[in-house]
Design a protein around this nucleic acid. Structure first.
Lengths: 160, 160
DNA sequence: GCACCGTTACTCGGATACCCCCTGTCCGAGTCTCGCTGG
DNA sequence: CCAGCGAGACTCGGACAGGGGGTATCCGAGTAACGGTGC
């Protein structure tokens, strides 16, 4: 059970974008900041755009920026955008193939095993949904107060 | 983020084995019960055996059975045995590649994003660890009181 | 001098290969059973 | 009749192919800026 690596990149990118409000940041500059492959990071940012988390503009002076306030972007939003909305545990309803099964029952809801796994994933998603990009950024500031200004400075001086 | 399909099979198999105490059940019979590929289910049962959840004996009259009381087998034990112990979110410590990084810091612990993801997975694992095979079996019985006897009967009459 | 237009350069966006892990299968190692044989 | 033994069969166990999704990359679509040209 491995999550897409792009989720990590997407979260850090969103945190950085929260410190660069109103500015269109290109994938190239974000990639250079963390020494990541540009085209692949661009792919992740596209997914965030499709999910309505970022807005993008093409051409010179183009780039990405947050589509809404960082306090309205949860970690779950990002995970769903990059990794997809499906649950990790897939109930294939094997009870339906077994003896004495009701062919028209929905075993994703009836099966006790499926219920237990779904409830566990629910707590997981609830925890992610309770954390926003603004929360993350705030916690970073609490330990490194100069992080926003430092980030802005580095992006301003970033060649490309 | 997709979990191994074998996790579902393993859990149902363990529930069934909890209703067949002291009896060695072969992979072939378990597979026939749910109409699953025998060899592949055998592979999953092997993983459970390596993890100490099941015991196995070879030869005629051989098979698998639970290695300990069902109340001592958590759903997390099974997930770890089949799907591996690694976290889904992989912190690649991209901050270490970024500017102003401390090369000898452990960013899996320092990075706020990593912390948030780890705490979410922790709640997930805690939920799974709080559910045992005995709990699952009990909940099945509460809705289908004849499930254990019915299962025993079907396994007794299972050809092969 | 000013407005318009064509070119240019830069960025996002989707389409395209590569590779690893999950899925699925097969054959060998181990062991219990059953029947045969000899006393 | 009974004990010992050997062949057989059955099961687990690990080693071996195939396919799908993640990883990584490239080129085209779109657009804003810039410079030149004509009025």
């Amino acid at each position: 059970m491995k999550m897409n690596e792009g989720v990590e990149w997407a979260m850090h990118s969103c945190v950085n974008l929260s410190w660069l409000p109103g500015e269109a940041v290109t994938a190239k500059r974000l990639a250079a900041f963390y020494n990541l492959p540009t085209a692949y990071l661009n792919k992740q940012l596209q997914a965030l755009t499709r999910a309505g988390i970022l807005t993008s503009v093409s051409g010179p002076k183009g780039g990405f920026q947050l589509a809404r306030d960082p306090s309205k972007i949860t970690l779950l939003d990002i995970v769903v955008a990059i990794d997809g909305p499906d649950d990790a545990f897939r109930c294939t309803q094997i009870l339906k193939e077994g003896p004495g099964a009701d062919p028209k029952a929905d075993y994703t809801r009836v099966c006790v095993v499926s219920q237990a796994m779904r409830s566990a994933e629910l707590t997981y998603r609830r925890t992610l949904a309770g954390q926003t990009i603004a929360d993350i950024a705030e916690r970073v500031v609490s330990t490194s107060p100069d992080a926003p200004a430092s980030t802005r400075n580095r992006f301003a001086n970033l060649k490309s």
